[in-house]
Write a protein that binds this DNA or RNA. Sequence first.
DNA 1: GCTTTACTTGTACCT
DNA 2: ACAGGTACAAGTAAAGCG
Length: 766
Amino acid sequence: MKTSFWLLDINYEMMDGCPQIHLWGLDNRNKRILAIDRSPTPYFYLLLKKGKDVNDVAQAVLKVARSLKDILDVTIVERRYFGKSAKVLKITCKDPDHYSINRLARKLTKIEGVEMALEDDIRFSTQYLLDTGITPCGWYELGGKEVENNLGAQVDSVYLITQPLKPVEITGIPNLTILAFTILWCNQKAIVVSMTTNTGEERELIANDTDDKPVLEGFIRFIREYDPDIIFGYDSNRQWHNLLERAKNLGLTLSIDRMGTEPHTSIHGHISVTGRTNIDLLDFAHELEQVKVKTLSNVAEFLGVKVEGEYIEEMDIPSWWKTKAKRKELLNFAKADASRIIGIGNTMLDYILELSHLVGLPLDYVGRAATGFRVENYLLREARSLGELAPKRVERPYFPYTGGMVMAPKSGIHKDIAVLDFKSLYPNLMILYNLSPDTYVDMKEKISEDQVYIAPELGHRFRKTPPGFYKHILTGLIGARDRIHQKMKSHPVNSFEYRLLDARQRVVKIITNACYGYAGWLGARWYLKPVAEAVAAWGRATISKAQDKAKSLGLEVIYSDTDSLFVKYDSRKIEALTREIEEELGLEIKPDKVYRRIFFTEAKKRYAGLLPDGRLDIVGLEVVRGDWAPVAKDVQERVLEIILKEESVDKALEYVHQFLSDFRKGKVPYKDLVIWKTITKPLEAYKAHAPHVEAARRLIEAGYKLTLGDKIGYVITKGKGKLYQRAIPYQMATYDQIDLGYYISNQILPPATRILEEFGIKEKFS
DNA sequence: GCTTTACTTGTACCT
DNA sequence: ACAGGTACAAGTAAAGCG
């Protein structure tokens, strides 16, 4: 029997002492399927010490292994390690539990002739995905026989896999059932739950005064009944924990997964719902850098998800609950939140699926996984297809190295400035000079100069051939992206296929660009400082040559940062420049945009430019920073706008005066005075008193629960003492307590005068 | 004992 | 928990002053 199968979720379970892989997914007729694979066995490798005979060591290992009943087999296999082929021992085990594997690996590592264990730190289900080449959110041909559903799984069919899954070329995703839920915590005993599905079903549950058991029961019932493939939530990882605790106290089992068991915290720290996918959209909201404060409504608004209805602050929920007449409003509010969640989920789903598909991390984990682990999982997959063993993750000391080059800008206003960008500079340098841990030539090693590329400034050497690991990876990714772009041309822009392909190319780009950072990340398996260091050094050499060429062509360079050049817009000279660079350096540089007018202070990484269509690009300045009061950002933005568009410093000055006068009269709303800053470490770890930290302490005193990474919104109030003593959480202060003077002298004026000063305005505002 | 200066801490940005 | 380079505010300690 053969059928097309789309993979949603993977886990393993022990059955009669043997592990079996469970693949959950959908077939091409939209039936829910559980496919069971009993064939895989857990394993790890032993790398041998140099000069040791593989048979001798194998014998020694076998001797020890025989005394350990958990080891099934020891075989000699041929693999590669940092590009060199190596005979290694493959140890097949009985128990996939990682503690058990680690224990065995440690024991066998002690044997004479064994250098170290490898891949003992890769989990069983990950090994399975790597070995089979299967990746979530993709289509496969499933060969197997249908068996009886005696596990109680909530699916249409259960299959036993008899042939390896084969990838199938299908663009598209099955018709997934999706549910979004949100929960309002009204008091210790009452909750409101709202659920919305992608088929338009809605369910709202509201507790009575003292008992929310019926609400939880209704929640469980509806999930089982609707049987969603994906469960969207916002901050739902926290919600699940609270729910599980609540259910426990009520003596309920939150049996909402497809095995009739409760959601559980997986090894990676996210909440896993077996057979379904739990996606916390807050994880993905962190990737939206433009949204500074990640509230559900802010993110929804940014993504253009429009939902009607009144907004209730989380802190106000209990008081709304207390007022019985207002309880219905809570229901409406929860309903609106659920709609926001499904709206956000719908706009991000393509991206999430493609990300999971490309890097191969399970759908419910990929959002939680940091960039480094996303890149790493992709590398693991590629390594496997090359027969490369994964290096161990090891602790390393931190020694910083020099990065990109930034030129001090020529300050003031410039007209008609083009921005030239090197296209994917770092990835292309890694390809061009074959920069990789496996091509690096150690200081001690003798090799003729014409066989290596030598890094400028540093002298690090890298073999020209054969292609290194990163070169292989990056050429593959860049090629794949080109092919996707090609494919996109054959689909209308509004089509489903186009959208999916667009998401795919975006994901490929993100992973491509993250490879350099990954190579210099201490936590990376494929870390090598000289690699990252050499990339940056070649980058500096490249941009510096580009600058010289520009100058010699008579193009004045206004500013430059890492891989970009700001030059006078002169299309003939720019064309000559890009051609020369391409010929001599083998790298592509092209005009990205042209500013009609651009403004720099003396500071690097900060400017504002006027585009031909009248839009303002503001970079680095307070306007785009999340840690200034909105009032300060607004004034600076308006000043820049007047100066760049209306070209009148006097007008800008007049505007500031008028604004201050209004401000003193209290015409600016309270919310525009709130300053937001992130708590980046446990409060007790702070050495200095900082306003946002003190405000956070006050919140905790008032009973709020804070997590690392939370943003604290505070205002500065009148009174005596240091600033940090006058910083009060915005929820706990009122307008009449505000120190307007502080806002004028420390928030509004500094960013505004920074701009005006460039025009010789030294006015003392008061 | 007060003010000025120099350095440290902390955050968020840019490529 | 992808890199380093940068700006800037506020806290804090040291230096300068009389």
